[in-house]
Computed example of a mutant assay.
Amino acid sequence: MTVIALVSAKSCGVTTSALAMTLSSTRPSLLAECDPAGGTLRAGFFQAQITAGTGLYHLAVAERAGEDALAQAVANHLVAIDASGNRQVLPGLTDPAQAPALARSWPALAQVMRVLSDEGGYDVVIDAGRLALESGRLHPTLTPAPLLHGADLVLLVVRATDQSLALARHMTDPLRNELTDRGTGAGALGVLLIEDGPRRAHEVSDALRLPVMAALPWEPDTAAYLAGTGRAPRKLNKSALLGSARMALGHLQAAASRRALHQQYPQTQPAPAALPAPAPAATPVAADAPQLAGVLQRLGQGRKDPRV
């Protein structure tokens, strides 16, 4: 399956977009809320029904006991967001001050996300939050860089406004450099456009020198519901936002597959620039890796109801 990381230069709807993709996936899906600045799903979408006893911070403690403990902790801290339990969330930090404790845990967590995708059949959407830079590179504590390194695709979320593009423009080169030097290559990088503003996709692509890999419509009512600030629309299942998110996810999955194929067989022609090829898959973890073997079996047992 696919691991997609969403980032932004400023709050541009990363969490709402990630949640829309997770809810609309036609396959088992997982949203990992990994914003070092703190998560918003707990207080927003879940309406404070999840306590601080569940979530990302506890994985840092588990990781110090070994990767097997981390894998089990991931399973135990997932929260179901549908009746079937096929769509799940790993809630984020409750306090930005917790971020330094996770710095050494990001690589191992990235490995777990890879196993969930490659061996567990999950579409994994990572909410990596707002990017922070230090000396022109991704900040080692305030950005979960290892999660971006291992993702099939890294999407910079922008709105279709000049202000959003101006802010995002400063992030494109650091992201390219990071993915080239430590990740799966600059081809993993693209744009997720929120169609809230006058700029068209081709204008956004030209301004940022990046392909627009997917676009989502601006639908305030559904967005407010996903953010926890509004009621569910009467016909949520017919929402334009969720329908577009489902189509976008399908396009991104196909793009990731094409790029992985091109990486495996370089002599084949890459995808055309208008529909960019996805990021080469990170080195897969062996299915029988002892430290991670239990995670897939425990996923079904680890689902929680947020009301508990």
Rank of each mutant, 00 (worst) to 15 (best):
M1I: 12
M1H: 12
T2F: 04
A5Q: 05
K10N: 10
K10H: 13
S11K: 13
C12A: 15
C12W: 01
G13F: 02
T15G: 09
T16L: 03
T16F: 01
S24H: 08
A32H: 01
E33D: 11
C34G: 05
P36W: 00
L41N: 03
G44R: 06
F45Q: 10
A48Q: 14
A48W: 05
I50W: 01
A52H: 11
A52N: 12
G55D: 04
V61C: 04
E63V: 12
G66S: 08
A69W: 04
A73S: 14
V79W: 03
D82A: 08
D82S: 10
G85S: 09
R87P: 09
Q98F: 06
P100S: 04
R104F: 10
W106G: 01
L109P: 05
V112A: 14
V115E: 08
G121M: 07
Y122W: 09
V124W: 01
V125K: 03
I126P: 01
A128P: 08
S135F: 05
S135K: 13
H139G: 03
T143H: 01
A145H: 00
P146G: 02
L147D: 00
A151I: 05
L156T: 03
V157Y: 07
T161I: 13
D162M: 14
R169T: 13
P174I: 10
L179V: 02
R182K: 11
A188E: 00
L189S: 03
L189G: 04
V191Q: 04
I194L: 15
E195N: 09
P198R: 11
P198V: 13
P198F: 02
H202I: 13
V204K: 03
D206S: 14
R209T: 15
R209D: 15
V212E: 08
P220I: 03
A224N: 11
R231H: 10
P233Y: 03
L236P: 14
L236A: 11
G243H: 09
A248Q: 06
G250D: 14
R258S: 01
L261K: 04
Q267C: 01
T268C: 00
T268A: 02
P270Y: 02
P276Y: 04
P276T: 07
P276Q: 06
P278V: 06
A287Y: 08
A293Y: 11
G294L: 12
Q297D: 14
R298P: 10
L299H: 05
K304R: 15
D305P: 01
P306H: 03
